[in-house]
Amino acid sequence: MSNDVDLGLHRLFDAMPEPEPDEAFVKAVVSRIDRFRYGRWIVRSLLLAAAVIAIVASKPLLIALIGFATAGINLLSFGAIGVLFSPVGWIVGGALALPLFLRAIGGRP
């Protein structure tokens, strides 16, 4: 009985006609795809434009940051050179290093 019912329903579903071919439906799908493609293209263009605008707008800030970084590096490097190659540096370095050296060799600082 159940199999008969199943067969009957299968037959009914199979007999349901497909809608007539509709060229308007095909055109609607094609235009939907076109809209999607244009939409995607517009979003990508907007994102690219936003990235360019962000870089251009932040140019002064970037230049200032690079300037500060360069100044910081220069200060450190010239400071180190100044300490290493000047008599004042030798005195300061010696004063700092002598106690460590004496402790290392077992003498009194």
Partner: peptide, 22 residues
């Protein structure tokens, strides 16, 4: 190929529209 996809839509529209209608 966009024309090929359009042809697929043309061929399969009946099946998909009937399924969705059901």
């Amino acid at each position: 190929d966009a024309d090929a996809f359009e042809e697929l839509v043309r061929r399969r529209q009946g099946m998909i529209r009937r399924l969705m209608h059901q």
